[in-house]
């Protein structure tokens, strides 16, 4: 446990997954396209979580969904629950959020959707954070480019790597 605490690890969060950890670790979502990385942070305890959201809110009953974590509403809820469980000292008021992703990599892909999926993902994520009273500190969403998101749990800084652009810090 001690070794795990002091060694800086990069924890990769795949599609439809989330991870909760503490400093000095870094949580990463690689190659976000229309998906959104949602970083929740408690800067007092240096604990945080990162969720890799694939889809807007779930419309079907939870029992019918094989992986609820891929949806904006259920994924954020599950991560918050885990964060609060692991970090007894905090409540939701100490937690802040930063988000990135929600791009539109190729135009007019899914004609059955009224809007592009990246944009809908961003809207649903923001709506969910608001309903949970979690303050959104910063975001880098939209566009037509991919993003890799690194969330440093020591500082709470989220660095976003974009091809042929300078790294953005949120």
């Amino acid at each position: 446990m001690d070794a795990e605490k002091t060694q800086n690890k990069r924890i990769l969060v795949g599609m439809g997954e989330f991870a909760v950890s503490h400093n000095p670790h870094t949580l990463s979502c690689i190659g976000l396209g229309s998906c959104i990385g949602v970083a929740l942070y408690d800067r007092i305890s240096h604990m945080g979580g990162l969720a890799h959201i694939m889809l807007p809110d779930s419309e079907e009953p939870v029992s019918k969904i094989s992986n609820p974590l891929k949806h904006a509403d259920l994924g954020i809820e599950a991560m918050l629950k885990e964060l609060l469980k692991k970090d007894n000292g905090i409540n939701t008021t100490g937690i802040t959020a930063k988000i990135a992703g929600g791009a539109h990599m190729f135009p007019t892909m899914d004609k059955s959707s009224s809007m592009d999926i990246g944009k809908r993902n961003a809207e649903c994520v923001k709506k969910k954070l608001k309903s949970l009273d979690i303050k959104l500190l910063a975001e880098d969403t939209g566009g037509t480019h991919g993003r890799t998101m690194n969330f440093d749990l020591t500082t709470g800084i989220v660095s976003i790597y974009i091809h042929q652009q300078e790294t953005i810090e949120l």
């Binding site: 599609m15 439809g16 690689i30 190659g31 976000l32 396209g33 229309s34 998906c35 694939m54 889809l55 094989s66 992986n67 891929k70 791009a103 539109h104 990599m105 190729f106 135009p107 892909m109 899914d110 959707s113 999926i117 990246g118 993902n121 037509t144 480019h145 991919g146 993003r147 890799t148 091809h163």
Partner: peptide, 24 residues
């Protein structure tokens, strides 16, 4: 055709996400 020059995962990401609305 549409073309993009970016992270492979990001391009794949959108297609997979859209598909996952209908199937696991």
């Amino acid at each position: 055709p549409y073309l993009n020059h970016d992270m492979a995962g990001a391009m794949l990401n959108q297609i997979l996400a859209e598909q996952s609305q209908y199937s696991d």
